[in-house]
């Protein structure tokens, strides 16, 4: 119980915007775990995530019309989980990015292997109490700068820095994931926070929070196990620094997004598939100049 309270406290504290200064923000892409397949099994999966943003902002120069653009973020990712003994789980994520920035009918494409992440979670709780099954994981990890990244000064001529496959920085993540299940129904709450560091060219992305709560219910249809999920996700990102050493804070970056999310998972023996659709309920991103339209996440996985 004490551990649950501590983890909930952690999640609540992560949710709190800093009151010491007037900052707030959110990002376009965050790694999160959510409702995970077959707890006792290892798995390897292929995941596809798509995010569509649109932006409209006034031109920096006089007598120019508003500038409009669309950004399509596509991530194809191999990911998996490996149980290390009874208490630890290792997660690894190898993404491939295919991002498109469309402005005035001209497309700028940024693609390539993204930043590889590794996460180790400790199983703090896995027990049944009064017909309720509790499972609590918490841990941390690292994101390595394996994706291609161009310095801001060069990229200014090509598009936004966050269109790139990599961030050019080593980032550190902490996360917690709690599942409460009774018979076929349950809830899942998770929170992940990323501490960013400065890239070689002094650019620094804002720290990011990704948190969510989902309700699920599983039932059988012939030989398939079906599990619909419904919930909400919240993303919050601090401002980026164009140059962290000089403290050039980009106040037109960062913000928050709140999504309603609905999805379904299906299992046949040791093969699983899932799809989630996220629709924004509320948002304020990049000083209101950027609008998130939707997110789709789908994937297949093999339990072993």
């Amino acid at each position: 119980m004490k551990r649950i309270i501590l983890s909930m406290l952690l999640a609540i504290c992560i949710y709190m915007p800093a009151k010491a200064c007037d900052v707030c923000g959110c990002s376009a892409s965050n790694q999160f775990l959510g409702v995970l397949p077959g707890y006792d099994y290892n798995f390897i999966g292929l995941q596809y995530m798509s995010t569509y943003l649109s932006s409209a902002h006034p031109s920096a120069y006089e007598n120019r019309p508003y500038e409009h653009s669309r950004e399509y973020y596509n991530t194809f990712q191999v990911w998996g989980r490996y149980n290390m003994g009874k208490h630890y789980q290792l997660f690894a994520f190898v993404p491939y990015q295919y991002n498109i920035h469309r402005q005035d009918s001209a497309d700028a494409l940024h693609s390539g292997i993204g930043d590889i992440s590794v996460l180790v979670n400790r199983i703090l709780i896995n027990k049944e109490h009064k017909k309720l099954q509790h499972q609590l994981l918490a841990g941390g990890g690292i994101k390595l700068p394996t994706g291609s990244h161009t310095s801001l000064s060069q990229l200014d001529k090509q598009g936004l820095p966050n269109m790139q496959p990599g961030t050019g920085s080593v980032d550190f993540m902490v996360n917690t994931n709690y599942t409460l299940r009774r018979k076929s129904a349950g809830i899942n709450a998770d929170a992940a926070y990323t501490f960013t560091t400065t890239s070689k060219d002094s650019y620094r992305y804002g720290n990011r929070l990704n948190a969510g709560a989902m309700a699920f219910y599983s039932f059988a249809v012939k030989k398939f196990a079906i599990m619909p999920v419904l919930g909400a996700r919240y993303e919050y990102t601090l401002h980026d620094y164009d140059n962290y050493n000089r403290k050039w804070l980009n106040e037109q970056s960062g913000g928050y997004m709140l999504y309603a999310t609905a999805g379904i998972q299906a299992y046949y023996k040791r093969l699983g598939a899932r799809i989630n659709y996220q629709l924004p309920l509320a948002q304020h991103y990049s000083s209101g100049y950027v609008t998130a339209n939707y997110k789709v996440e789908s994937g297949i996985f093999l339990l072993f």
């Binding site: 551990r3 501590l6 915007p17 804002g206 720290n207 804070l249």
Partner: peptide, 22 residues
């Protein structure tokens, strides 16, 4: 565990304050 949690909360709070060139 408690100490780790306190360090984490402090780290998040401190890192949320963003200095800027004035």
């Amino acid at each position: 565990m408690k100490h780790l949690l306190i360090i984490l909360i402090l780290a998040i709070t401190v890192s949320a304050c963003q200095k800027k060139d004035t």
